[in-house]
């Protein structure tokens, strides 16, 4: 999770990612952030994030993102 938080920090700093659970619903992350985040995650974890996974339900918290990353890394 530490690695993920670090990446999220470079995309958008000043957010308590360990605690926040409504990053999209509260408008903390915007479309610029999501586009950068997808590019950074794909590189850092060597994963392909399919369009079907790019939904608010996967981006609302660091924990949800981590779960998505694990899922994609296990079943490439």
């Amino acid at each position: 999770m530490e690695k993920l938080i670090k990446i999220m920090d470079t995309v958008r700093s000043g957010v308590d990612y360990m605690a926040h659970t409504a990053l999209i619903d509260d408008g903390v992350l915007d479309s610029f952030d999501i586009v950068s985040l997808i590019a950074e995650l794909s590189d850092a974890y060597d994963i392909q994030i399919p369009a079907e996974e790019i939904v608010p339900e996967n981006f609302n918290s660091a924990a949800l993102l981590q779960a998505m990353i694990n899922r994609l890394a296990d079943n490439p």
């Binding site: 999209i24 408008g27 915007d30 479309s31 999501i34 586009v35 369009a51 079907e52 790019i54 939904v55 608010p56 981006f59």
Partner: peptide, 10 residues
């Protein structure tokens, strides 16, 4: 809605 442009399938 602007937020939909983050989520292409939606």
């Amino acid at each position: 809605p602007k937020s939909l442009f983050m989520f292409p399938v939606r």
